[in-house]
Design a protein around this nucleic acid. Structure first.
Length: 422
RNA sequence: GUGGGCGUAGCUCAGCUGGUAGAGCACUCGGUUGUGGUCCGAGAUGUCGCGGGUUCGAGCCCCGUCGCUCACCCCA
C-alpha cells in the first residue's frame, strides 16, 4: 500500500534549517528597535470577523475585493484570515479600551498574514510581517519616530541598498480638491477598459502603472502634494525636518500609491531594488478615520508593516547575514556510555551560561563525529573518553585553526566564556 | 484573473536526428587503535511530475492534466 504525498498549499513559504535561523534573526532584528522605543507586544488572532477588513481596509481595495481568505465557521459566521495587521490592532484597542489610558497607545505585533494572490518572487499567500502602531496622537514627531524605527530595523540587518520614499496624502479637503482635477485629467487620456475600470475605483492607482506609455501619460497628471492644505503641508515639512535631524535619508515620491484605503497624511515605503518585481520591503502611514470607522472614538494613528520574508531576501541579496550567529559554540563528542553520562551534565552546565552546546549522539566513529562537528560550524570541540574522565580534564580544540588547550572539566564553562569573550 | 519559462537522484543539472538513464555536489562507510576541513576508494538513491496517444521501441514527438517559477495586476 503506497500513499500519495501531500504537498504544502500553493504559495506558502516555509522556513527550515538552516535558513530558518536567518529568518528568526531577521524577524528579531526588525522588531528590536520598536521594543527599544517602548512599544509593547500585542498578540492577536489570525482570523477575524470579515467585516473588520471590508470596513476597515476598504471594499474597493484589491486586498478586500479579491485577495481575502474568507470562509464560514461552524456557527455560520463569516471569518477572514487577516490580510494585514492594522485593522486587527485597532479592533483590539477599541474592544479592550486601551485608548482610555494615556496616549499614544504604542504596540507591536508579528505574525502571519494571508492574501490569495498568484505567488511570485517575494510574494506569498502566507507571509510574515512585523509592525507597530502608535495610536491617539496627531504629532509629526511620532510620524518621524515611527519611520525611524522601521529604518533602524533595516539597518540592523546590514541593508544598505534600500531607499525610503515618503509623501503626504494630506487631509480630506486636500484629497477632495485633488481628486476633482485628477479625474478631469484622466478623462483626457485614452485608456483601455481594464485601466479605466481601475481608475474608477481609485484614480491614484494609475500613478503606479508600470507600462512606459502609462508612465509618460501620467507624467503631467496633477499631484496630490500640490493640493495640500496649509496645515497638511506644514505637518509634512515638520516630518521631513525631524527625519533630517535623525540623519535618515529619504526621497519624496509624490506618485506613491498605497493599496489600503485607510491611509491619510504621512505615508512611506521602503523599496529594495534587488528583489525583482516585488520590491517593497515595508511601508505604512497615518490613518485618521480608521478607528472611528471601526466603532471607536475618533483618534488618529500611524504605523507600519515590514515584510519579514522580503527583508530576508534583501539581506541574502546584499549578503549581510551574520552566519556566525547561527552556529554552535561547543560540540561535545562522548566516547562510551560513561562519557555520555557526563557529556549530558557538562552540556547542561555550559549552556547555563548562554553558550550553545551540541552533543554527538549515536554510535558514530570519532572521525564521523568530528565531521559532524565541523559541518555544524561549531567553534570548539571536546572529545570526552575514559582518559578524560579519569583526569578530569579535556582538550578544548578551536576548530578555526586546530589549536588545542587542556582544560579542567569543572572549568569548561569559564574557559568557554573567556574564549567567546562573553 | 492574464501571459511566458520549466518539471530527470536529496540539491544543481547533462541526456545528440526517438534505441529501456548519467555527472558534480551532498550522504554513509573505509584508507590500522581516539580528532574535522584536502586527497583516494567503495556504497546507496530514480514509477524521467501524472494520464493518454503515435511508434517495433518514448526522458526525447503529440494531446491533456497537475505542479513549480517569473512577469502583469497588486503589495509586505
Amino acid at each position: 500500500m503506497k500513499f500519495e504525498k501531500i504537498n504544502a498549499p500553493k504559495g506558502v513559504r516555509e522556513y527550515l534549517p538552516p535558513e530558518s535561523s536567518a529568518f528568526e534573526w531577521v524577524r528579531s532584528q526588525l522588531i528590536a528597535p520598536a521594543k527599544l522605543a517602548g512599544y509593547k507586544l500585542m498578540e492577536l488572532p489570525v482570523f477575524e470577523d470579515t467585516n473588520l477588513f471590508s470596513r476597515g481596509v476598504g471594499e474597493s481595495t484589491d486586498v478586500v475585493s479579491k485577495e481575502m481568505y474568507t470562509f464560514e465557521d461552524r456557527g455560520g459566521r463569516s471569518i477572514t484570515l487577516r490580510p494585514e495587521g492594522t485593522a486587527g490592532v485597532m479592533r483590539a484597542v477599541i474592544e479592550q479600551s486601551l485608548d482610555r489610558a494615556q496616549l499614544p497607545v504604542k504596540v507591536w505585533y508579528s505574525g502571519q498574514f494571508f492574501r490569495a494572490e498568484r505567488p511570485q518572487a517575494g510574494r506569498f499567500r502566507q507571509f510574515y510581517q512585523v509592525g507597530i502602531e502608535a495610536i491617539g496622537l496627531d504629532d509629526p514627531a511620532i510620524d518621524a519616530e515611527v519611520i525611524a524605527i522601521a529604518d533602524r530595523g533595516f539597518k540592523n540587518l546590514g541593508l544598505k541598498n534600500y531607499r525610503l520614499e515618503i509623501t503626504s496624502l494630506g487631509d480630506a479637503e486636500s484629497r477632495a480638491a485633488h481628486r476633482v482635477d485628477l479625474l478631469a485629467f484622466i478623462k483626457t487620456l485614452n485608456l483601455d477598459e481594464a485601466t479605466s475600470q481601475r481608475a474608477g475605483i481609485n484614480p491614484l492607482r494609475l500613478f503606479d502603472d508600470k507600462r512606459p506609455e502609462m508612465q509618460s501619460a501620467m507624467s503631467k497628471a496633477p499631484l496630490l502634494l500640490d493640493y495640500l492644505s496649509d496645515s497638511a503641508r506644514n505637518n509634512f515639512e515638520k516630518v521631513q525636518s525631524y527625519l533630517r535631524g535623525m540623519r535618515i535619508d529619504f526621497v519624496i515620491n509624490p506618485r506613491m500609491v498605497r493599496g489600503l484605503d485607510y491611509y491619510t497624511g504621512t505615508t512611506f515605503e521602503f523599496i529594495h531594488p534587488d528583489l525583482g518585481a516585488q520590491s517593497g520591503i515595508g511601508g505604512g502611514g497615518r490613518y485618521d478615520g480608521l478607528m472611528e470607522i471601526l466603532g471607536g472614538q475618533s483618534l488618529s494613528g500611524i504605523g507600519f508593516g515590514l515584510g519579514v520574508d522580503r527583508a530576508l531576501l534583501a539581506a541574502i541579496a546584499e549578503d549581510s547575514l551574520p552566519t556566525e550567529e547561527f552556529t554552535s559554540d561547543l560540540f561535545i563528542i562522548p566516547l562510551g556510555e560513561n562519557a555520555m553520562d557526563s557529556a549530558l551534565t557538562i552540556a547542561q552546565d555550559v549552556r547555563s551560561a548562554g553558550i550553545t552546546v551540541e552533543i554527538a549522539f549515536g554510535d558514530r566513529a570519532l572521525k564521523g563525529a568530528m565531521k559532524a562537528a565541523d559541518k555544524s560550524g561549531a567553534r570548539f570541540v571536546v572529545v570526552l573518553g575514559d582518559s578524560e574522565l579519569l583526569n578530569g580534564s579535556v582538550d578544548l580544540k578551536r576548530m578555526s585553526d586546530g589549536v588545542v588547550t587542556s582544560v579542567k572539566i569543572a572549568q569548561l564553562q569559564d574557559q568557554m566564556r573567556q574564549a567567546l569573550s562573553l
